[in-house]
Design a binder for these strands. Structure first.
Lengths: 231, 231
DNA sequence: TTTGATCTTGACGTTTTCTTGATACGGCGG
DNA sequence: CCGCCGTATCAAGAAAACGTCAAGATCAAA
């Protein structure tokens, strides 16, 4: 269920990186690393990790500056690891946007616990885009797993919801039968196109005013289906 | 312009409280304090502060337990202040729901910086939840761990309460079986879905007028359960 | 040790959801 | 006009998920 987490370590000490990677591997966490601030900024923006471990003592630029630059565009949790234990350093880093500050040497257990805290925080923030679609008299909230039709709640079965979700995630674009089948029933049922007809019919009955003349759940003959927004 | 912030210090050392109050006053922060864990829980639910400073070495109960009890109903940031610097203590507190952990003695500057971080976090995200939920003929006070049905107190067993709390915290949203099992029985029992059925049945018998036709404790087949407010 | 409350476990009936087949519809080319 | 193909609809049986009850097991307090 939980997709593997990715953590970026901006850290120039290979030993520490290796140690971190080993420690995190057992927790379904993949570690990518960057040895310089510049490389870290690039990695952060291209790989978009779930959390960033940031060393303050980087060879090319000040860690606090890295922090600031990251905060210009992202709210990814930043956990600072530093050999400097001065209060001034901590305050500066925290005010630059860091979420936590650990002084080396630190225990791996504490680090993991603080990582858990940071991930807990980022779970509920408005970090990601809003997965709520409103169109016509439909309101579909993928995150809350909730569908309203003209204000009234509509109950969907698990597979109905999965199917609708796949369509809504690709709103206004054609989704092939193959892709839908794979998303809902798994890669093993790619040719049971009949499932699609049955479930699309069910969805139309639950969501459309005139199931025979759908306004949103459009079929693209020979290809797949499409969720149409707007009226 | 900014409305005053209110911080609750659950701390039995008057000296420290006085020092904190003085330090915070200059930052438009009002400090209220509670000398015991029990008093702290009450203050937290009645005053609903913006942040909680929690001493682990309280005279009446374990600080970690206080933390857990708070997390049963609220997401108010909790910053632990402790004389204990052992890694095990930190991990335990952080996993119990604390957001940060400072070891005494600490610098006031660092404390303020960490308070700023915590407040920054709580700004986004949905604010602290209500400590009391009323709907239909039910009145659920998560902070006091009390449940009234039509004015009469209902006795819940520990696990029943945990299950209800997890549902109520996510009122009107679907909570997956996985999440419920993890919250009540721990991460090791994620597939004992039978527990859920038994305990949901118990809860319905205690809280619903017609257990077979529940108005609040709704099941979402194949997914989980949902606590429905209003009619 | 006994007691009482709570938790765990298993069996069994019910409900919901999924799968499957039969049949009907509609556009298109022959 | 007819048959073909992909699609839509409906309903019944199968499978999975859920609700219920009650008998052990566990644990802490008396």
């Amino acid at each position: 269920m939980t997709a593997d987490l990715v953590i970026l370590a901006i850290e120039d000490e290979p030993q520490l990186v290796r140690f971190l990677r080993a420690s995190l591997a057992g927790h379904a966490i993949r570690l990518i690393d960057a040895p310089t601030g510049a490389a870290g900024l690039v990695e952060a923006s291209t790989r978009v990790p779930d959390l960033i471990l940031l060393d303050l003592g980087l060879p090319d630029m000040d860690g606090v500056e890295v922090c600031r630059r990251l905060r210009e565009w992202t709210k990814i949790p930043i956990l600072v690891l530093s050999a400097r234990g001065q209060e001034r350093d901590k305050i500066e880093a925290l005010d630059a946007g860091a979420d936590d500050y650990l002084t080396k040497p630190f225990g791996i257990g504490e680090l993991l616990a603080r990582i858990r805290v940071a991930l807990r925080h980022s779970q509920r923030g408005p970090g990601a885009s809003e997965p709520v679609i409103e169109t016509g008299n439909l309101r579909i909230d993928l995150a809350l797993r909730r569908v309203l039709r003209a204000g009234a709640e509509v109950h969907l079965t698990p597979n109905e919801f999965k199917l609708l979700a796949e369509l809504v995630k690709n709103a206004d674009r054609v989704v092939t039968q193959r892709q839908l089948l794979k998303a809902v029933w798994g890669p093993g049922s790619v040719d049971h196109t009949h499932y699609l007809r049955v479930f699309m019919a069910n969805l139309r009955h639950k969501l459309e005013d005139l199931p025979a003349r759908p306004r949103h759940l459009m079929t693209e003959a020979g290809v797949g289906y499409r969720f149409r927004t707007e009226t």
